[in-house]
Simulated assay, not measured.
Amino acid sequence: MINKMFDTSDFLKKALDGSSLRHAAISNNIANVNTPGYKRVTVEFENLLKDELEKNKLRLNTTNAKHIGGNLGNTPYSTIRTHNNIAVRRDGNSVNIDVEIAERAKNEIYYNAISRQISRQFDAINSVINEGGR
């Protein structure tokens, strides 16, 4: 059971890492909104996490009918993509500030939700440790 909790925590950490990388990319896009020739950068990770999770479901090891095991491994979970073929303005810049601000807000909501989930995960572990010590 404890392994499953840590596997979940590892998965959530990878989601936080991807969201953090996305935030950096969005911030860089916003910082370069007036840079001629700058090409917008995006970070994709949700589908990669989902695919890896689905693949691992097929390779789970079990020692008992009621136990579920598995490991997410060390596969990279983020893809950084530069949008070279799109230009929003004449100077070749492909950043649309309205899109970037909306994406930043969406990413912040996602990051906060994952942070709350991992916090609850650690609260549960802490509760088990504290209750077990009595």
Rank of each mutant, 00 (worst) to 15 (best):
F122E: 15
A113G: 09
N130F: 10
G132N: 01
K57R: 12
K13A: 03
G132R: 04
S78D: 06
G70V: 13
D98I: 13
H23C: 04
G18P: 02
T63M: 08
K39G: 15
G92V: 02
K106D: 15
L58W: 00
R81G: 05
K14V: 14
S78W: 14
G73D: 08
I114Q: 05
V99C: 06
I129Y: 11
G73C: 12
N96I: 05
V43S: 06
N85Y: 07
N126I: 00
D17R: 10
G70L: 09
N47F: 10
N29L: 05
A25E: 03
N32K: 12
P36T: 01
F45L: 07
L58H: 02
F6H: 10
H23S: 14
G92P: 03
N107L: 08
N61E: 07
R59N: 14
A15V: 11
M1Q: 02
L48W: 00
K57D: 00
R134N: 15
S94C: 10
N64Y: 05
E46V: 10
L72C: 00
A124Q: 05
I30P: 02
L60I: 10
T8F: 10
E131K: 03
H83G: 00
V128C: 05
G133N: 01
R134S: 13
I114K: 02
E46M: 08
S27P: 00
A87M: 10
N28Q: 06
L48M: 02
K66T: 15
P36A: 01
F45S: 10
K57F: 12
D98C: 08
K14P: 05
L49Q: 00
A65I: 14
T62K: 14
D17H: 12
N126W: 02
I68F: 04
N74Q: 14
R81W: 09
D10A: 13
K106P: 03
I80Y: 01
E100D: 06
I68M: 07
K14G: 12
Y77F: 13
A15E: 13
R89D: 02
S19F: 06
S78E: 13
V99L: 13
D91G: 07
R81C: 12
N28R: 09
E52N: 14
D51P: 07
T62Y: 10
I101T: 15
D10L: 08
I26W: 01
I86E: 00
V99K: 08
I114E: 04
R120N: 07
Y111G: 03
D91V: 04
N126V: 01
S78Y: 09
I125C: 03
E103F: 14
R116A: 05
P76W: 06
N93Q: 10
S119Y: 05
T35M: 03
I118H: 11
N28V: 01
F11Y: 12
E44C: 04
V95H: 00
V95L: 00
I2V: 13
N3M: 07
I2M: 14
R81M: 15
V41M: 11
N112K: 13
I97Y: 09
E131T: 12
T62A: 12
